[in-house]
């Protein structure tokens, strides 16, 4: 959390987050094709950076409960963004590591927050350039509204209506000192993501 952010509410603590992820893991398994019980034509795609950690947790949960080991890819859609020149801070190009062919696969794209929909749009374009997936679904831990594109999430952890100037911060112990989901008032002049 940036020093200048003011926390307005804690939306989830570590336990809430765990429960929500467990529920979403069940929903992913529901989406799987009955003709493909081992998930050979299925994959999770985590979006850099927190989406990757969330996708890893979902993969672990599915393996523990359903004994299905889903392939996991990592996607960075920075090269496909439409706004990298407008933002005050240049987005760092991070790693894309998808070690399987996306063609004919059913993909679940995983991210922490769904907001304008522009990152998802960029991710869809990036995936399309890698092949022709059979389908792409989208999972977000928090849907904060304020969409600028006709995009929705297929699996949502929690819907939280927000106004601009507010931010949703998903903190995970893989990347942060503590865990939870927070609604904050942004006081920095960084542009929205």
């Amino acid at each position: 959390m940036q020093a200048s952010d003011v926390v307005k509410a804690r939306l989830m603590d570590a336990q809430d987050l765990e429960r929500t992820l467990q529920r979403m893991a069940r929903q992913i398994v529901e989406l799987m094709d009955p003709d493909d019980p081992a998930g050979e034509h299925f994959a999770l795609i985590g979006m850099q950076t927190r989406g990757v950690h969330i996708a890893r947790r979902l993969k672990r949960m599915i393996r523990a409960v359903d004994d299905i080991d889903l392939p996991l890819g990592v996607l960075d859609a920075t090269m496909y963004r439409d706004d990298f020149r407008q933002r005050l801070k240049q987005p760092v190009v991070r790693a894309t590591r998808i070690m399987f062919d996306v063609t004919e696969r059913n993909l679940v794209l995983v991210d922490d927050v769904l907001y304008t929909g522009r990152t998802v749009r960029a991710a869809l374009d990036a995936l399309m350039d890698m092949g022709r997936p059979a389908s792409i679904r989208f999972l977000a831990v928090v849907d904060r509204g304020l969409r600028e594109l006709p995009i929705r999430a297929d699996i949502v952890g929690r819907t939280v209506p927000t106004i601009s100037g507010e931010e949703i911060r998903v903190r995970l112990h893989e990347t942060d000192s503590h865990e939870g989901v927070y609604l904050v008032e942004r006081r920095t002049n960084s542009t929205r993501n």
Binding site: D76, M79, Y80, V93, R94, A126, D129, M130
Partner: peptide
């Protein structure tokens, strides 16, 4: 570091990004 990620684009079937 940035070049490393662009290097991967050169190995894809569609070697082009709209950046």
């Amino acid at each position: 570091d940035t070049a490393k990620e662009f290097r991967d684009v050169l190995e894809r079937p569609i070697k082009r990004v709209p950046t």
